[in-house]
Design a protein around this nucleic acid. Sequence first.
DNA 1: ATATACAAACCAATCAGTCGGTTTCTTTTT
DNA 2: AAAAAGAAACCGACTGATTGGTTTGTATAT
Lengths: 202, 202
Amino acid sequence: MRALLIEATLDCLQAHGFHGASLSVILKQAGVSRGAWAHHFPSKQELIAAAAEAMMADAAAAARAVAATLDGQEDRFTSLIEQVWQRFYCGRHRDVLFELVVACRTDRALAGRLHPVFVELIDSFRGAWGSATPDATGGGDLLTLTLFVLRGMAMQEMLAESPDGQAALRGLWTGVTRDFLQSRHDRPLRRPSGGPLLGAVR
Amino acid sequence: MRALLIEATLDCLQAHGFHGASLSVILKQAGVSRGAWAHHFPSKQELIAAAAEAMMADAAAAARAVAATLDGQEDRFTSLIEQVWQRFYCGRHRDVLFELVVACRTDRALAGRLHPVFVELIDSFRGAWGSATPDATGGGDLLTLTLFVLRGMAMQEMLAESPDGQAALRGLWTGVTRDFLQSRHDRPLRRPSGGPLLGAVR
DNA sequence: ATATACAAACCAATCAGTCGGTTTCTTTTT
DNA sequence: AAAAAGAAACCGACTGATTGGTTTGTATAT
C-alpha cells in the first residue's frame, strides 16, 4: 500500500507538478481511499518526502549499477554520459527531480529531508565517473561540469522536447572534454593559466 | 499599480515559490486590496503571466546591453560568462526563472505565453555571444553548451549556495572552451571525429 | 454626472486533515 | 477446533481554513 501510494505520488508529480499533485488527485490516481492513506502516512508532506526518498534511493542504486556496465566499453566516457542522460535526465525522473529541487528552495523541511539523498545520488555518479576515467585526469570538477551540462540540457528539453534529444550537443560536449584532457596531457603545467580566451584567438 | 503588483508578484514567487505565491500573499506584500487588484488584472494567471513577461523583457534588454559592454574588454568571453551569470543565474531572476520553467511544464497556457519571451532572451544571449566570439569559432552550439553549464550551476546553487559562487568551475569551463577552440584551430578537419575518449587516453 | 480607482464583504470550490464506524486478519481462550 | 477478543487496514462523510474570483458600495476626479 505504501508502495502503491508512493508510485501514484510520483506519477502525479510528473503529470500535474508539485502544486497540482493534491491529495485528492493522488488518491484518485492510486485508487485508494482517504482513510487508507491516513493509516499509512501522517501527512501529505510525509508522503511526498517518502516518495522523493524512494525515487532518489532507486536512482542512486541505478547509478551504482551503471558503473558496473562500463567495464569493457570501448568509449566509457561517452557511454557513461549517455546512460546517465537516459536514466536520470529524461522521463519521470527528470520531471519529478526538477519539481522537487524547485520545491526544496522554498520548503526548508523538505529540503532538509531530501538534501542527504541528493548528495547520495551525486556520490554515486562520482563512483561511476571514477570507473570511466583514470584518476589523474581531472578530479571531480569535470564530472561536476558534465552534470551541469546535463542538467541545463534537461531543463531545455523540459521547455521544448527536441527531435534528436540533444544528442548532437552531448557529442560536442564529449569532444570538448576530450580536447581539454588531451591538451592538459600535452602541456600539463600550463593549467590553470587564465589568460585571454576568445577575444585574443581571433 | 500594475507595476506595483507585478513587482510584488515577482518577490512572492521568489520568497514562496509558484504554489506558495497565493493571491492573498501577493496582495498583502503589495499592500493592495483585492478589489484594486481585480480592477487591473482579470485573473491570477494573467497577473503571473504579466509579471513573468515583464521580468523576461527586462532580462532580454539587459542581455542586449551586456553585448555593448564587451567591446574593448581584454577577455570578452570570460566577461560575458561572468556578466550573464551575475545577472541571470543569481538572485531573484534565477529563482523566479526556475519557478516559471517548472510551472510551464504542467501549465500549457502559461507555457504558450512564456515560450516567446524565453526564446527572446536566448536570442539576446546569442547576440551577445556574437560580440564576444569570432563567427568562425563554433556557431551557436558552444553558446548553448555554455548556457547549459550556467543553468546546471544555478540549479546547484539553488540547492546549496556555495561560498565562492562556483567561480572556480566557471574558470574551468572557460579553460575547457579555450582548449577546444585552440585545438579546432590547430586541426580543423579532425572535427567531428567521435573516437574513443577517456577510456583510451589512459 | 459619469467613469475610474479602490475597498471590504462575500462566494463556491478545494485544500489537508480528522473522526466514527466497518471489514479483515491474527491471536488468544476455551 | 470453535469462539471470542483484539489489532490493523480501510472507508467516506465531515471540518475549518484557504483558494481564486465576484459583488456591492464608496470615494475622487473629470
